[in-house]
C-alpha cells in the first residue's frame, strides 16, 4: 500500500494511470459507447471531414473513424494486456518453481529459458506466425511463448535472493509450508521487479503487435485495429494524410502512458535506482535491459 501511495504521489504516473484506465474502460464498453457500428460502410461519406454525427470524420469506406478507434482498443490494447499478463503469470510460476525446488528441476528449466531467450523477439514471432499462419491470436501466442522466459528468469533470481533472507528462514523454522512461504513472503518480494518488467514489455508489445498488424500479418479486415487502420490510411497518405492522425495519436498516447508508468513504477519500487540501468524498455527488446540487470546481479 505504501508503494502504491508513493506511485500515485507522482503526478505524471497518476495521470498515466488515469489515461490507461480510461482507454481500457472505453475498450471494454466500445459496443455501447461507439456512435456507429465500426464496419458500417457508407460510400457517400467517403473521407468526410469531422461533423457532429461523426466526430472524427470518415475513412476510405465512409466508416466512422471514432467508432473504429474505440472498437480497435480491444485487439490493440486489451488483448495485448491479456497476453502480457498470461506470459507474466506462466513465467512467474515456472521461475518460482525453479527457485524453490532448485537442483535438477532448476537447471532444466533455466536451460529451457536460455534457449527461449536466444531467439530474438521479432524472429521468434515471425517464426510462429510462419508456422501457424497470420492472425492476431497467433501473434499473441508467439508473444506468450517468447516472453514467459524473461519473467521466469527474473522470478527465479528474486526467489533465490529472498529464500535465504532472515524472515523467510524464520517462517520456515516456525513450520510454514512451501505454499505459505510463496504466498506470504516470496511472491510479494518478487512483485516489484515483475511489475517493472511487465509494464516495460507491455509497452513494446503494443508497438510490435500494431507493427505486425500494419504489415498485414495480424488481424484481418474488416475488423478495426489501430495498426491496420494506419496501414489502410497509408494507402491514401499522399492525398489524405489526416487519416493517419486518429489511430497514430491513440498508439502514441497509450504507449507513452505505459512507458511513463513503467518508469514511475521503477522509481517508486526502488528508490535508490539511478545507476547505469535502463529505465524504459529498449524498443524491440525491453528484456535486454532486464538481461543487463540480471548480469549485474549475478556478479
Amino acid at each position: 500500500m505504501k508503494r502504491l501511495q508513493r506511485l500515485l504521489s507522482d503526478r505524471l504516473a497518476a495521470a498515466s494511470l488515469a489515461v490507461l484506465a480510461a482507454i481500457l474502460a472505453a475498450g471494454a464498453l466500445a459496443p455501447w459507447i461507439a456512435p456507429h457500428p465500426p464496419d458500417e460502410v457508407d460510400m457517400a461519406l467517403r473521407y468526410a471531414p469531422w461533423s457532429l454525427d461523426y466526430p472524427l470524420g470518415n475513412d476510405q469506406l465512409g466508416r466512422c473513424v471514432l467508432s473504429r478507434v474505440l472498437h480497435g482498443i480491444r485487439p490493440s490494447v486489451l488483448y495485448v494486456l491479456a497476453a502480457v499478463l498470461a506470459s507474466a503469470g506462466f513465467g512467474t510460476a515456472v521461475g518460482m518453481a525453479a527457485g524453490l525446488l532448485r537442483g535438477r528441476t532448476d537447471a532444466l528449466l533455466m536451460r529451457l529459458c536460455d534457449v527461449m531467450l536466444s531467439f530474438p523477439g521479432y524472429v521468434m514471432t515471425l517464426a510462429v506466425i510462419g508456422v501457424l499462419g497470420t492472425g492476431l491470436a497467433n501473434i499473441l501466442l508467439a508473444f506468450i511463448l517468447m516472453k514467459w522466459a524473461w519473467f521466469a528468469r527474473v522470478a527465479r533470481t528474486a526467489v533465490q535472493r529472498h529464500a535465504d533472507a532472515g524472515y523467510v528462514l524464520f517462517a520456515r523454522t516456525l513450520g510454514a509450508g512451501r505454499l505459505t512461504l510463496l504466498r506470504r513472503h516470496l511472491l510479494p518480494a518478487c512483485l516489484p521487479e515483475l511489475a517493472v518488467l511487465a509494464s516495460g514489455s507491455f509497452g513494446t508489445t503494443l508497438l510490435q503487435v500494431s507493427g505486425l498488424s500494419f504489415l498485414g500479418l495480424g488481424i484481418q479486415a474488416p475488423h478495426a485495429e489501430w495498426g491496420m487502420m494506419l496501414s489502410e490510411a497509408r494507402q491514401a497518405m499522399f492525398s489524405r494524410p489526416e487519416q493517419l492522425l486518429a489511430p497514430g495519436f491513440m498508439i502514441v498516447l497509450t504507449v507513452s502512458a505505459v512507458n511513463f508508468l513503467s518508469d514511475a513504477l521503477q522509481t517508486a519500487l526502488d528508490p535508490q535506482a539511478g545507476g547505469p540501468r535502463q529505465a524504459a524498455a529498449v524498443p524491440g527488446e525491453p528484456e535486454a535491459a532486464a538481461a543487463a540487470m540480471l548480469r549485474k546481479e549475478a556478479v
Partner: peptide, 22 residues
Amino acid sequence: AFFLTALPPYLLAAGLVWLLSV
C-alpha cells in the same frame, strides 16, 4: 527521446516520407 520511443516506427516513416519525399 521519450516521445520517439513511443512512436511506432511505421508512423514515423510515413510522416518523414510525407514531409521530405513528397
